[in-house]
């Protein structure tokens, strides 16, 4: 009973991810793109929840959906590209088919890697996935990557602020 529920839920969420991805690729209007992004990220969060990873679920919803999607929306609305501003893309179907042909063997390689990847990591305990266990792991074993990531984010933030700042005129007090 639980198995059927889990399998059907997984199928639904995977369908959501694929639909969202396809919407991002194939949509013609930016609103549909944004909706596809939202659906895809929400479904990924759902997949995390299915694996009992509660902290990753919250992080995904809070940061990706509540932060990234909204900022993407603001960006789309601010930049406001029209169809006429984009460069022309002739022979789109040929490009797509050619790319699919090239990527197919690569995806086989990817699939092979992913299925054997599980052996490289030790299995975690059943209670792993909550905030406390993830935090302990991060701050015991992964402190250095964590701090480097935070420096990277700080650099990105400072760069964004500097790029976004307007020129100050000299007779105006800031």
């Amino acid at each position: 009973m639980i198995e059927i529920l889990e399998t059907s839920l997984f199928a639904l969420l995977a369908l959501g991810v694929l639909t969202g991805g396809l919407m991002i690729l194939l949509a013609r209007r930016p609103a549909t793109h944004a909706m596809g992004f939202f659906i895809a990220l929400l479904s990924v969060a759902g997949l995390f929840a299915l694996l009992h990873q509660s902290f990753l679920f919250f992080a995904q919803v809070l940061v990706s959906v509540g932060g990234v999607v909204i900022v993407t929306l603001i960006m789309i609305l601010t930049v406001n590209l029209r169809e006429a501003d984009l460069p022309p893309e002739p022979h789109q179907t040929r490009w797509l088919i050619g790319a699919a042909v090239i990527i197919a063997p690569l995806s086989l390689l990817l699939y092979q890697t992913l299925t054997t990847l599980g052996d490289a990591f030790p299995p975690v305990s059943d209670t792993f996935g909550g905030t406390r266990s993830l935090g302990t792991l991060l701050f015991h074993d992964g402190v250095l990557p964590f701090e480097i990531l935070s420096v990277l984010l700080l650099t990105a933030m400072v760069g964004a602020i500097i790029i976004g700042k307007k020129e100050q005129s000299y007779d105006r007090e800031s």
Binding site: A31, A34, M35, F38, L42, S54, F55, F57, F58, V61, L62, V65, G66, G67, V69, I70, L73, I74, L77, G130, T131
Partner: peptide, 24 residues
């Protein structure tokens, strides 16, 4: 048992409804 995280996460999804509504 993770109430506050749930509130933060789900509460931030509500804004998307407003943005989509206003945009469309």
């Amino acid at each position: 048992s993770y109430g506050i995280l749930w509130y933060l996460a789900i509460g931030s999804v509500g804004i998307l409804g407003m943005v989509f509504g206003g945009w469309l």
